[in-house]
Simulated scan of single mutants.
Amino acid sequence: MKFSIKRSAFIQSLNTVSRAISSKTTIPILTGIKITADSEGLILTGSNADISIETQIKIDDAKNELVIEEEGSVVLTAGFFVSIVRKLPDEKMDLSVSNDLQTTIKSGQSEFTINGLNASNYPHLPEIDTDDSVTFSGDIFKEIIGQTVIAVSTQESRPILTGVHFELSAGKLLAVATDSHRLSQRSINFSGSDRDYNFIIPGKSLNELSRMIEEHQDLEMRIAENQVLFIFGDTFFYSRLLEGNYPDTSRLIPEESTTQVQLEAPTLLASIERASLLSHASRNNVVKLTITPSDGRIEITGDSPDVGTVEEELEPESVTGDELEISFNPDYVKDALHSFGKTMIEISFSSALRPFTLKPTEDGDSFIQLVTPVRTF
């Protein structure tokens, strides 16, 4: 194999596939990047137990300045190889692989020789044997990930909760995540597929996917039995799906409430962040919210026996219903509020010991955050 390429274009693709590579893998060859040169260009592949990423550098794209003199393939250890390419002196680089897989990298007056691995030993990518696909706006799907993945569990004791549950049916996508202490649910209308889907994508996979999606980029999704494939630009992103049945979360969302508060999400977020400065110093990490509809005010309190207390009054846009005093983990509520951005939200409570919901005041049924309170007595 032998080719020359514009180094900046090569680095961009190396960075893309490197997202799938882990130094902790039990399969040594997966610490490397597979590079294949053929008549159409270069194909770079990175993989671990959960995700695989493949991207193409096309020979007919002039900005890549790609010239392939000899086709072939090799696997190069990612850590060394990527560092070498980043530090090469010139904008142009040459790479050649000998029969014994010795790989020579040249740029300007610099020349490296590193050991390659046989690409035939690299695991095959999953086969997604279906032409049926669903296409989303990349911006919307990235937003859905950001709004739901915050609620996935980090505890491996219940693996099914470490992912986001997706249901596609009757022109609607529903995405739900919960760690049993909080829940995030987002729904959108879509068109383009007559099939129904029900699957769970690991939260870690979605985080990596979200970092790769560029603005105004369409995202094509294909589902197989235990894999999902996302296609965007010249990149293919594979993720395993979690096996098992996701719990029925619809019954967790209260249908009625006794106290309602409306206010700007950033206002409440800033107040809770101040209160949590002291609550974090306490072993319990609890913030208390006192709602008095007759005064039209709410009070936020945080304290630490070793440090002190903080109290702050807020004047919401509206407050109705019964008086209430409720305690909660401020980190859960801060995550929820961050996901709303600069939106006016409505918080609905049913009792001091039952979960409460946060929704945007406009189109509230499309996005719901739910938080379980903390018992303090």
Rank of each mutant, 00 (worst) to 15 (best):
K2S: 11
S318C: 04
T25S: 12
S339A: 14
N245V: 08
S18V: 08
G171H: 11
L252V: 10
M212H: 00
G341S: 05
F356R: 04
S366F: 07
G171V: 07
V152S: 02
L30E: 13
P293D: 07
D365Q: 10
T320L: 12
T36M: 13
T361W: 05
L117M: 15
F237V: 09
I200S: 01
E323M: 11
H181D: 05
S348L: 14
I231W: 00
N99R: 05
S137G: 10
H181A: 03
T258L: 13
G341A: 10
A281T: 11
S187T: 15
R354V: 01
D61A: 13
E346G: 12
K342H: 13
G146A: 11
R182P: 01
T31A: 10
T55H: 13
V67P: 01
D61W: 04
S327N: 02
S257L: 06
P373H: 02
G244F: 11
L168E: 12
S22L: 07
F199C: 04
V85K: 05
S279M: 08
T16P: 11
H216T: 08
G72T: 13
E323Q: 14
L66F: 14
V152F: 03
P247R: 05
P28W: 15
S96A: 12
V310K: 03
R297T: 13
F230A: 07
S52D: 08
E214Y: 00
S169H: 09
Y246P: 04
S257N: 14
S304F: 07
G79E: 15
E215T: 14
F340P: 01
S366M: 11
V374M: 02
I21P: 08
T372H: 00
T31D: 10
T258R: 15
V149M: 00
N99C: 00
P247V: 02
H280S: 12
P266E: 11
P373M: 01
L370V: 02
Y246E: 01
E111K: 15
E71N: 11
I213N: 07
E215N: 10
I326V: 12
S276R: 08
S276I: 03
E167M: 11
G32D: 08
R7T: 12
E243C: 04
V371N: 01
E362I: 04
L242R: 01
Y122I: 09
S137I: 08
Q109A: 07
I300P: 07
R186F: 11
P89I: 09
L278I: 07
A20I: 10
M93V: 08
T178Q: 03
F141D: 06
R211F: 04
